[in-house]
Amino acid sequence: MSEKFIKRENASEESAAMRPAVNVVEDATGITLYADLPGVPKEKLSIHVEGDNLILEGELEINSPPNMEAIHAEVDLSRYRRVFTLSRELDGDKVSAGFRHGVLELRIPKAEHAQPRRIVVQAT
């Protein structure tokens, strides 16, 4: 058996998680992050900022019948986790979030001092 497989089996709770697909878009006033977290109800979603890190976590809740026998599984872990490093100009205290149909939309604004300013070029 390969090392990878053994590692996976012995992996701590921390690493046994799926990595959600994301889209990250930046505009002049901030960053918008979209994360795919299908199967996660709103109550099982957690977003927190620790220092420079933005941590996304979610637990799946699929109410399958108790007597069901799995015959094919592509989603075989019960949680998602992904960590991003926020750069200094982003304001981690002002993150806002929306969650709909398994897609998380996070808005991280740029700090006041990092907002774009138009510099008027003076004619001399």
Binding site: D36, L37, P38, G39, I62, S64, P65, N67, M68, E69, A70, I71, H72, A73, E74, V75, D76, R100, H101, G102, V103
Partner: peptide
């Protein structure tokens, strides 16, 4: 991504398609 399971009374298919 899909998961498929069976019970004596049904076939259960789950497709993970967010958004």
């Amino acid at each position: 991504a899909m998961n498929v399971g069976t019970t004596p009374k049904s076939v259960e298919v789950y497709a993970f398609a967010p958004g």
